[in-house]
Design a protein around this nucleic acid. Sequence first.
DNA 1: TTAAATGCAAAGGGTTTGCACCGGA
DNA 2: TCCGGTGCAAACCCTTTGCATTTAA
Lengths: 165, 165
Amino acid sequence: MARPYTPGVDRAHPAAGSAPADPVWSSVRDRLHASGLRWTPQRRTILDVLAASDGHVTGAELVERCRAIDPATTPSTVYRTLDVLEDLGVVRHHHGPDGREEFHVLPEAEHGHLHCRVCGRSWEVGAAEVEPMLDALRRHRGFEADISHMALVGRCADCREIRRG
Amino acid sequence: MARPYTPGVDRAHPAAGSAPADPVWSSVRDRLHASGLRWTPQRRTILDVLAASDGHVTGAELVERCRAIDPATTPSTVYRTLDVLEDLGVVRHHHGPDGREEFHVLPEAEHGHLHCRVCGRSWEVGAAEVEPMLDALRRHRGFEADISHMALVGRCADCREIRRG
DNA sequence: TTAAATGCAAAGGGTTTGCACCGGA
DNA sequence: TCCGGTGCAAACCCTTTGCATTTAA
């Protein structure tokens, strides 16, 4: 049952946005300041890593990758910063198939996730693709689902193919 | 950020099925035997609790509730049994909004879950309600999503109303 | 009889917390 | 200067594992 799993995403539609020229964090710094909070080297490291991770990392991984840049990084700082960033609306998290928190910087477009139970790969799903369902939930129940937190587990095309073959 | 949360479900359509007359576990016992596995008092307790929990409990809660019946219950037995039951297809788990495993006995009809981020309540969503989306995912990507593992987080009708008011 | 299941106790992994010190603004 | 952040270390919680013992079949 212990299924090997590492986050990371095969972007559904490759060149969706491409990296912005200006540093990801410049606006974040401003937002922090606007809230009376501070811009620190540690926070910069964390944001750099988040941005470089194609936006998908578990908390533990984030700690590890930050350590690669700054060996002095500590978990508490990372997790506390993630809390702050989430409050600011800069990042979001959902729970991977193994239940661990998985973070991503808020993308241009909101998206959910598909996780293949068999091969462990994952994909993004655009809002458009799930909008009909979200709409139905909204209409029938008044429930406003949060796409960014959505993670569907199942079997991907390849793995379904293999079992079939 | 630490959000108070206790699983438990407001069934969407109240009297959907009503409890079966025969003990939930009689067929399970047979299935265990059929696989060369054993029917034990502990397993019976666990199944009774699962069935009495409206089918939704975290692992930790299950342990606790089993202890109420049999104080000698140990976590290892509970978790190991859950693994077995999941392999047998008797129970399923998904991850609640806080990432903990949440188990339910496989219902007559597969269903997913809605969790309100604000009030913490949750609801079941029938397959029908999400079928259009699943269908779209299947067609566009070949991805077969597992409804039983689906848990959408968002804001329920009541809580949206409050914020609005 | 004998493999499966249990109980115990300890480890494990990710995440959180308390507290003294540090350092952006 | 001063409050927000950091680092450390320990605590926490849920879950898993190893191993000797029990027990269903």
